[in-house]
């Protein structure tokens, strides 16, 4: 399509950009694997200096990092599982089951898409404060599983499945629940995978809500915990530790992303492109 020289220049620029995008990540891993004393002298290496895994060992043996990781795992897994169940069931109901109030309920869900979460954290805080539920796991999970985007995606998905599958099952005498479980759910595995990964990443990385709700350091997630250690950048004595913590906070997501990248990318186009 384009001529040879422009193509070469294009590749050169892309390669340079790729370097800019990858170097910060490599640097984090390299510092995390470096000896702390060596880092006190020089921090500008892209390869580990006096390579060691001490930083990771220290973090796991003492301090709060294991607890924070545990909190993150609990909250993220719970949120993802509940979001998937609720979105699939609500999506199926909206797409297939005629019920009273549907014409009011679905627009309300769509209106929920318009509500910017970050602008609504104060009232959300007050709801949980009224019931004295802060610093608990369910306070971190519940607001997240109300995912209008998930319901919207699943409704779209189920609407596009041809009706014949269900008709055949109805003739065989299958109940609605059986149809949902045996026919619809297996067919929606790709959509659910994409939604699940998307939810997982968003929840793991959520910052503002855990910051507001889980104020007890033992209830921090790894995301807010890592942020809490960045108050004072002047004290760079344990730079390796800090970077190792960054690796702990990002590794699960990077691994998940590299395994499921096709689904992630499809999920994004699905979630926003189809609107």
């Amino acid at each position: 399509m384009s001529s040879r020289p422009t193509r070469t220049i294009g590749y050169a620029i892309l390669t340079a950009l790729a370097a800019v995008w990858i170097i910060p990540l490599i640097w984090m891993f390299s510092l995390a694997l470096s000896d702390n004393d060596a880092l006190a002298r020089d921090t500008t290496n892209l390869l580990p200096v006096q390579a060691t895994t001490d930083n990771f060992v220290t973090l796991l043996e003492s301090g709060r990092t294991p607890g924070w990781l545990f909190n993150s795992v609990v909250v993220t897994v719970a949120t993802t599982v509940f979001t998937l169940i609720l979105s699939a069931m609500a999506g199926y109901a909206f797409a297939r089951i005629p019920f009273k109030g549907k014409r009011i309920a679905f627009p309300l869900v769509l209106a929920g898409l318009m509500v910017p979460k970050e602008a609504m954290f104060i009232p959300l805080f007050l709801i949980f404060a009224d019931f004295e539920q802060h610093n608990t796991y369910h306070a971190l999970v519940l607001p997240r599983i109300a995912a209008p985007l998930g319901v919207f995606i699943m409704t779209q998905f189920f609407s596009e499945i041809p009706g014949e599958f269900e008709e055949a099952a109805v003739i065989d005498g299958a109940s609605r629940w059986t149809i949902f479980r045996r026919i619809m759910l297996p067919m929606s595995v790709p959509a659910l995978t994409a939604l699940g990964i998307f939810t997982f990443v968003q929840t793991w990385n959520d910052y503002l809500w855990p910051l507001v709700s889980a104020t007890d350091p033992d209830m921090f997630t790894i995301t807010t915990g890592l942020a809490s250690r960045q108050g004072n950048f002047a004290q760079a004595s344990a730079l390796g530790d800090l970077m190792a913590q960054g690796v702990f906070a990002s590794a699960p997501l990077l691994i998940l992303f590299f395994i499921f990248q096709r689904q992630v990318i499809r999920g994004i186009s699905m979630g926003s492109g189809s609107k």
């Binding site: 910060p24 990540l25 640097w27 984090m28 942020a227 950048f233 960054g246």
Partner: peptide, 19 residues
């Protein structure tokens, strides 16, 4: 590669870039 940073959390982002 270009998409990878998007999966990082904001505190990892600030950790890397602050330094």
């Amino acid at each position: 590669l270009f998409f990878a940073p998007y999966v990082l959390s904001v505190s990892v982002l600030t950790l890397i870039w602050a330094f």
